[in-house]
Protein backbone atom coordinates (compact mmCIF):
# COMPACT_ATOMS: atom_id res chain seq x y z
CA UNK A 1 0.00 0.00 0.00
CA UNK A 2 2.96 2.28 -0.49
CA UNK A 3 1.36 4.31 -3.27
CA UNK A 4 -1.61 5.20 -1.04
CA UNK A 5 0.65 6.61 1.68
CA UNK A 6 2.14 9.16 -0.69
CA UNK A 7 -1.23 10.91 -1.03
CA UNK A 8 -1.63 13.99 1.18
CA UNK A 9 -4.51 14.12 3.64
CA UNK A 10 -6.44 16.88 1.83
CA UNK A 11 -6.64 14.65 -1.25
CA UNK A 12 -7.24 11.41 0.65
CA UNK A 13 -10.28 12.59 2.63
CA UNK A 14 -12.46 13.75 -0.31
CA UNK A 15 -11.41 10.68 -2.32
CA UNK A 16 -12.34 8.38 0.58
CA UNK A 17 -15.69 10.16 1.03
CA UNK A 18 -16.49 9.87 -2.69
CA UNK A 19 -15.59 6.16 -2.68
CA UNK A 20 -17.76 5.44 0.35
CA UNK A 21 -20.64 7.51 -1.07
CA UNK A 22 -20.48 5.81 -4.46
CA UNK A 23 -20.21 2.24 -3.23
CA UNK A 24 -22.79 2.84 -0.50
CA UNK A 25 -25.34 4.19 -3.00
CA UNK A 26 -24.70 1.27 -5.34
CA UNK A 27 -25.22 -1.19 -2.48
CA UNK A 28 -28.46 0.58 -1.47
CA UNK A 29 -29.64 0.38 -5.07
CA UNK A 30 -29.17 -3.39 -5.15
CA UNK A 31 -30.82 -3.75 -1.74
CA UNK A 32 -33.78 -1.95 -3.29
CA UNK A 33 -33.55 -4.24 -6.31
CA UNK A 34 -34.02 -7.25 -4.02
CA UNK A 35 -36.54 -5.79 -1.59
CA UNK A 36 -38.97 -3.75 -3.71
CA UNK A 37 -42.22 -5.53 -4.50
CA UNK A 38 -43.00 -4.84 -8.19
CA UNK A 39 -40.95 -4.68 -11.37
CA UNK A 40 -41.73 -1.04 -12.08
CA UNK A 41 -40.51 -0.14 -8.58
CA UNK A 42 -37.37 -2.17 -9.07
CA UNK A 43 -36.71 -0.28 -12.31
CA UNK A 44 -35.76 2.73 -10.16
CA UNK A 45 -33.29 0.92 -7.92
CA UNK A 46 -30.28 0.54 -10.27
CA UNK A 47 -30.33 4.26 -11.13
CA UNK A 48 -28.84 4.91 -7.69
CA UNK A 49 -25.76 3.00 -8.79
CA UNK A 50 -25.66 4.45 -12.28
CA UNK A 51 -26.01 8.11 -11.30
CA UNK A 52 -24.12 9.22 -8.21
CA UNK A 53 -22.84 5.73 -7.41
CA UNK A 54 -20.81 5.64 -10.61
CA UNK A 55 -20.03 9.34 -10.53
CA UNK A 56 -18.62 9.16 -6.99
CA UNK A 57 -16.28 6.25 -7.70
CA UNK A 58 -15.23 7.62 -11.09
CA UNK A 59 -14.47 11.08 -9.65
CA UNK A 60 -12.49 9.52 -6.80
CA UNK A 61 -10.48 7.47 -9.28
CA UNK A 62 -9.79 10.51 -11.47
CA UNK A 63 -8.60 12.59 -8.50
CA UNK A 64 -6.46 9.77 -7.07
CA UNK A 65 -4.74 8.88 -10.35
CA UNK A 66 -4.22 12.51 -11.29
CA UNK A 67 -2.30 12.85 -8.04
CA UNK A 68 -0.42 9.56 -8.32
CA UNK A 69 0.63 10.02 -11.95
CA UNK A 70 1.36 13.75 -11.60
CA UNK A 71 -0.55 14.45 -14.81
CA UNK A 72 -4.21 14.95 -15.71
CA UNK A 73 -5.85 11.49 -15.77
CA UNK A 74 -9.52 11.95 -16.53
CA UNK A 75 -10.28 8.98 -18.74
CA UNK A 76 -12.38 7.54 -15.89
CA UNK A 77 -14.80 10.39 -16.45
CA UNK A 78 -15.50 8.90 -19.88
CA UNK A 79 -16.87 5.80 -18.13
CA UNK A 80 -19.17 8.12 -16.18
CA UNK A 81 -20.30 9.80 -19.40
CA UNK A 82 -20.77 6.44 -21.07
CA UNK A 83 -22.88 5.06 -18.22
CA UNK A 84 -24.87 8.32 -18.15
CA UNK A 85 -25.77 7.95 -21.84
CA UNK A 86 -26.35 4.19 -22.00
CA UNK A 87 -28.42 3.70 -18.84
CA UNK A 88 -31.48 5.53 -20.23
CA UNK A 89 -31.34 3.33 -23.32
CA UNK A 90 -31.27 0.06 -21.39
CA UNK A 91 -33.84 1.11 -18.79
CA UNK A 92 -36.25 2.55 -21.38
CA UNK A 93 -36.00 -0.64 -23.43
CA UNK A 94 -36.55 -2.79 -20.33
CA UNK A 95 -39.49 -0.64 -19.25
CA UNK A 96 -41.07 -0.90 -22.67
CA UNK A 97 -40.44 -4.66 -22.78
CA UNK A 98 -42.12 -5.06 -19.39
CA UNK A 99 -45.11 -2.91 -20.46
CA UNK A 100 -45.42 -4.89 -23.68
CA UNK A 101 -45.30 -8.24 -21.91
CA UNK A 102 -47.73 -7.15 -19.20
CA UNK A 103 -50.18 -5.85 -21.79
CA UNK A 104 -50.02 -9.05 -23.82
CA UNK A 105 -50.73 -11.11 -20.73
CA UNK A 106 -53.46 -8.68 -19.69
CA UNK A 107 -52.00 -7.97 -16.27
CA UNK A 108 -53.74 -4.98 -14.73
CA UNK A 109 -50.45 -3.65 -13.38
CA UNK A 110 -49.76 -2.16 -16.81
CA UNK A 111 -51.53 0.96 -18.06
CA UNK A 112 -53.25 0.75 -21.45
CA UNK A 113 -51.48 1.95 -24.62
CA UNK A 114 -51.21 5.69 -25.07
CA UNK A 115 -53.62 5.70 -28.02
CA UNK A 116 -56.45 4.21 -26.00
CA UNK A 117 -59.09 6.71 -24.88
CA UNK A 118 -58.68 6.93 -21.16
CA UNK A 119 -58.53 9.37 -18.37
CA UNK A 120 -55.22 11.24 -18.63
CA UNK A 121 -54.95 11.52 -14.87
CA UNK A 122 -55.39 7.82 -14.46
CA UNK A 123 -53.11 6.08 -12.06
CA UNK A 124 -52.97 2.60 -10.69
CA UNK A 125 -52.37 1.35 -7.20
Amino acid sequence: MSHLDSVPLWVAIPVALLIVLGSGLTLLGTIGLVRLPSFYDRLHAPTLGTSWGTLGIVLASAILFTWLEKRLVIHELLIGLFVMITTPVTLMLLGRAALHRDRIEGLDAAPPPAGAPDNPDEQLP
Partner: peptide
Protein backbone atom coordinates in the same frame (compact mmCIF):
# COMPACT_ATOMS: atom_id res chain seq x y z
CA UNK B 1 -35.19 14.76 -21.65
CA UNK B 2 -35.11 10.94 -21.63
CA UNK B 3 -31.58 10.99 -20.23
CA UNK B 4 -32.58 13.47 -17.53
CA UNK B 5 -35.72 11.56 -16.52
CA UNK B 6 -34.03 8.16 -16.46
CA UNK B 7 -30.83 9.32 -14.79
CA UNK B 8 -32.87 10.78 -11.95
CA UNK B 9 -33.72 8.02 -9.48
CA UNK B 10 -37.44 8.11 -8.80
CA UNK B 11 -38.68 8.64 -12.33
CA UNK B 12 -38.54 6.13 -15.17
CA UNK B 13 -39.37 6.91 -18.78
CA UNK B 14 -41.58 4.11 -20.11
CA UNK B 15 -43.21 5.15 -23.34
CA UNK B 16 -43.54 8.17 -25.60
CA UNK B 17 -46.20 8.44 -28.26
CA UNK B 18 -44.92 10.68 -31.08
CA UNK B 19 -48.43 11.23 -32.48
CA UNK B 20 -50.07 12.65 -29.39
CA UNK B 21 -46.86 13.75 -27.69
CA UNK B 22 -47.87 12.08 -24.43
CA UNK B 23 -45.16 10.61 -22.23
CA UNK B 24 -45.82 7.70 -19.87
CA UNK B 25 -43.72 7.91 -16.72
CA UNK B 26 -43.43 5.67 -13.72
CA UNK B 27 -42.87 7.60 -10.51
CA UNK B 28 -41.37 5.90 -7.47
CA UNK B 29 -42.86 8.14 -4.81
CA UNK B 30 -46.08 9.63 -6.12
Amino acid sequence: LAIIVTATPGTAWLEYDPETGVLLLHVFDL
